[in-house]
């Protein structure tokens, strides 16, 4: 009897575990199937066409792709130096009394849902952008800034963790040669933790590009490529969030699935690069 239960238990755990792989394959398949119509009708034009006009059955994803790339790029430019600064402060500079409370509150802020960041952005940051740059305040720039603030706690916490892996004895050796704090950080700590730091930045990039709620509030969902950062724009997740429930034709519906598939492929690729190339054997949740 015991033997049978033992076998059942072993097999059911294996079944559930394998179903995770099956699930991922299923997600890709379903998204692919539902994208078929749009792929056949629009082909490669889908990603090069700039006009998105559902009422005219025109579906060009380039503005959304452009918006995703630019808003994420803006977010990274702003967040990377801040995250490094915060991480240096937390791992090398802060007095012992500050280290733990500030560190923990940063980690807790990383747990705050992104919808809250979006809401804060809409009510408090949009007016600032409007007053500073004119326009309506809902813009690519606003989205980039809100996104950067949303990914900052995660990036800072992981960068700090990577820096903290540097053995004390290695840092002491550099101090023993007459190094200053900055010498030790730039010559020892950063090179030592390099893979972990770059990996966590790329992982943050992968998350930012798929982030929906922090940007949906403040981006405007306007399908237009504009070099003016203070103009409203859209991104792939913003388009999905705004239009999925409105899709009234098969082609519209299918092109939204193609956008989803595109987004999944992009983030899967970026996250895989971070994980397999930089974070091998270390786990970043």
């Amino acid at each position: 009897m015991s033997l049978i239960i033992d076998k059942i238990f072993a097999h059911s755990t294996k079944l559930v575990a394998i179903s995770v792989l099956f699930l991922v394959a299923w997600i890709f398949t379903v998204l692919f199937q539902h994208s078929m119509e749009s792929m056949q009708a629009l082909g490669f034009d889908f990603v090069t066409e700039t006009k998105w006009a559902p009422n005219l059955e025109k579906f060009g994803a380039l503005p959304a792709i452009y918006g995703s790339i630019v808003s994420t790029f803006l977010a990274m430019i702003l967040a990377v130096p801040l995250a490094i600064g915060v991480a240096i402060f937390l791992s090398e500079l802060a007095p012992a009394k500050l280290k733990s409370p500030v560190g923990v509150s940063i980690e807790l802020l990383a747990a705050i849902p992104s919808v809250i960041y979006g809401m804060w952005g809409l009510f408090y940051f949009v007016p600032i952008i409007r007053d500073t740059f004119g326009g309506i305040g809902i813009s690519m720039l606003t989205a980039g800034i809100v996104l950067s603030i949303m990914i900052l706690p995660f990036m800072a916490a992981v960068t700090r963790d990577a820096m903290n892996t540097t053995p004390d004895i290695l840092k002491e050796s550099a101090y023993a040669l007459g190094g200053t704090k900055w010498d030790v950080i730039k010559d020892i700590v950063i090179p030592y933790a390099k893979a972990g730091i770059i990996g966590s930045f790329i992982l943050a990039l992968g998350r930012a590009i798929g982030e929906t709620m922090a940007v949906t509030f403040v981006m405007g969902n306007v399908h237009k490529i504009s070099l003016d950062l203070t103009a409203p724009a859209t991104s792939i997740p913003v388009t999905l969030a705004n239009e999925f429930t409105e899709a009234d034709t098969d082609l519209y519906y299918s092109s939204l699935f193609e956008l989803s598939l595109l987004l999944l492929v992009i983030s899967f690729t970026i996250i895989s690069i971070a994980k397999f190339y930089f974070l091998r054997r270390t786990r970043v949740a």
Partner: peptide
């Protein structure tokens, strides 16, 4: 493999999961 795929899934965009569930 299951570990790696799960790690990637943890950071994958959640809106895409919404689209998948919409379809199924």
């Amino acid at each position: 493999t299951i570990r790696d795929i799960s790690d990637i899934m943890m950071s994958a965009p959640s809106i895409v999961i919404g689209a998948f569930v919409y379809a199924i």
